[in-house]
Nucleic acid binder design. Structure first.
Lengths: 230, 230
DNA sequence: CGACGGCTTGATCCGAGTCAATCCTGGTGG
DNA sequence: CCACCAGGATTGACTCGGATCAAGCCGTCG
């Protein structure tokens, strides 16, 4: 039985679904299962959670703070694949080896659960199995949107897309608190730090956004941003 | 039970694995299941197989020919997410709506199977269920490599990576037959057709490759290409 | 209050894009 | 069999968006 959910409904508690069979088969079994079997762990700013090439042992849930996942080229160029904030599950992979590195962006608290434990739970819980698959599928969906951004959007469009996406994640909606630095944003958007900075300034001049402080952006004209989103 | 395989072992027949329980539980149950329950269908060059936004009904296996999947921006800029050739499964998604469009690059023969049929088969066949997940995870892995390419590699590196990837897919290894046009390659690599063409010419001048005809590339110096691959 | 790290701004450069001809080459019809 | 044609590919000249290089600025924390 396929059980599909949007990224948001996975991330944010939803009003207690229809319980089936057991207590484990509710609307968001993955983060629940992970919370049940996982262990709380604290990572300080910029510390590595796992590294590319390491064996895959655990799956993670962000309790507080934020995490970046990225790949490096041999000369140090970095591409951040995604950011993970409170409520996000990350590090769920199927293969033996980590495909990327994960680091805490800020001091963070994370639940750490063994993948094999989750997978064996999924053997008796169809809805958990479905959500494991569904979570990977959702990561893929995000990656595909990101491909379009990196391959075909101009700097302004990239930044606008990024801001709208960040706004969609919190329920703050119009005020975006950025947990990450300009360098992180640049490496996520395939730009340089200078271009990110200039583009934000330009959007502020055009009155699409306000920047009360460098880590806080107010999306005062979302319509304008969406227009840029192509 | 997790059952992990590389993209290649999924794509190319492997010497009959260890049969478990039933005949369906072999080494590559997904393409087998798809072949069993699927219907052969022919698509002519440039015809659409499914379109972004349409409901997801089927899953596909390329029998012959080649397929591209892509997203468009409103002004027509196109980003190709991946190419699919003989033996590849594509169009396996978890959500309700197609996230991208699929088109035949050349006249192609494809097996078409209903997703719900496959999913219900997976209910009684753990190894099929595992491979459904594993297939999506593999698409994600490829997408992540592609993110690094689009976000951080220069034109020469992109083309070198592309050629090595294409070579890795066939077992031809050193002679690559390209089913797609320069425009397709450009839209896959986030470049223009002119840049792709110039870069290939440059690689030929540098004696990393030979181009006996525009659709056939000989990777005469793979080491040089790998060096470019960063 | 000073210093450091992160951010912004300015000046200049350059890799890839754009615009514009050709140049194949594979397919067609005479 | 050959000449022609159309669409794809290559090449050239020039442009431009974003990168690079280089100062400053600002806010936070000791």
């Amino acid at each position: 039985m396929l059980h599909q959910e949007t990224y948001h409904s996975v991330r944010h508690p939803v009003p207690m679904g229809f319980p089936r069979r057991s207590a484990a088969s509710q609307e968001r079994p993955l983060s629940e299962a992970l919370t049940e079997v996982g262990v709380r762990h604290r990572y300080s700013r910029n510390s590595e959670i796992f590294g590319e090439g390491e064996p895959v042992e655990n799956v993670y849930l962000v309790v507080s703070g934020a995490v970046r996942t990225y790949k490096l080229l041999s000369d140090g160029r970095r591409q951040i694949g995604d950011f993970h904030i409170q409520g996000d599950v990350f590090g769920l992979e199927v293969g033996d080896e980590r495909q990327f590195t994960a680091e805490a962006i800020a001091d963070s608290v994370v639940m750490v659960a063994s993948r094999s434990a989750l997978v064996s739970m999924a053997n008796d819980d169809t809805s958990l199995a479905a959500e494991l698959w569904s979570h990977t599928a959702n990561d893929l969906k995000r990656a595909q949107d990101h491909l379009l951004l990196l391959g075909r959007k101009r700097a302004q469009e990239r930044v606008a897309t990024f801001l709208l996406d960040m706004a969609g994640r919190n329920r703050a909606d119009i005020i975006v608190e950025l947990p990450m630095s300009r360098q992180d944003i640049a490496d996520y958007l395939g730009l340089t730090i200078e271009t990110v900075s200039r583009t934000l300034t330009r959007l502020e001049d055009d009155e699409a956004i306000e920047i009360p402080s460098s880590r806080r952006i107010v999306l005062s004209d979302k319509r304008a941003l969406r227009r840029l989103n192509a």
